[in-house]
């Protein structure tokens, strides 16, 4: 079966009619997630670089630890996100007597993650533009004994005007592309779990809308 990326993005119902007619295959979804995890890792490297700069003075080697953690966390986190989202959809769809396998759900979630890869690329470009403008407070050794100092530094870091602007842009981009993914996932879950369109919309819509509302709430907390 040939994978049509435009079909995934624009005509998901037709795409899943074809794709899910085939035997379960996680290769392409995994590649999409891998692509997303690579972009996320690059973004994590840029953000981690700033955090490392902020905490480098606290302890020798602290910057390397932070950088590696940020890159690895972003890379692995994308795969974990894939599993968690699939699990949430799978569990909720049980209430609607869904019948498909979990791996089929993972396949759907993997395909539906494609818009978020595009969104990650946009946020990466924004990060490249904004991060050099961010003022990074420098923490020193004494901050190890002073959690309030670390908190104050983080607050300063997060409230930097450039950082605030970057966060707002990335959040809005994430919301748009997350809802785009949700749109794709609704069609996919319907097919994968053999439930109605309404039930699928509820399975996908509720957690995703809650997540998006959480993102909007975070915007207000900046």
């Amino acid at each position: 079966m040939s994978i049509s990326i435009p079909d995934i993005l624009i005509r998901p119902e037709a795409f899943f009619d074809n794709a899910l007619a085939e035997k379960e295959n996680l290769t392409v979804p995994a590649l999409i997630i891998l692509l997303g995890s690579i972009v996320a890792a690059i973004y994590g490297y840029l953000m981690g670089g700033l955090s490392a700069k902020m905490m480098a003075g606290m302890m020798p080697g602290m910057d390397s630890i932070i950088l590696i953690s940020a890159v690895a966390g972003a890379f692995v986190g994308t795969f974990i996100f894939w599993i968690i989202v699939a699990a949430v959809f799978y569990l909720i769809s049980l209430a609607f007597k869904g019948q498909g396998s979990f791996s089929r759900v993972m396949e759907v979630v993997g395909y539906g993650y494609l818009p978020q890869v595009l969104g990650s690329l946009i946020t990466l470009i924004a990060a490249i533009e904004y991060l050099p403008k961010v003022t990074v407070p420098i923490l020193t050794k004494s901050a190890l004994d002073n959690p309030e100092a670390i908190e104050a530094a983080m607050k300063t870091f997060m409230h930097d005007p450039a950082m605030v602007e970057l966060t707002q842009i990335t959040t809005l981009v994430a919301i748009v592309f997350m809802l785009w993914s949700a749109h794709i996932w609704i069609f996919g879950i319907k097919k994968a779990r053999n439930i109605s369109m309404r039930d699928s919309a509820i399975c996908v819509g509720i957690p995703i809308v809650l997540y998006v509302l959480y993102l909007i709430h975070n915007l207000g907390a900046l």
Partner: peptide
């Protein structure tokens, strides 16, 4: 002393909802 304890949150930071 230039430790982190002296870091100031810029005035107006966090003020008002976006």
């Amino acid at each position: 002393k230039i430790s982190a304890t002296s870091i100031n949150v810029p005035a107006g930071a966090g003020g008002g909802l976006p």
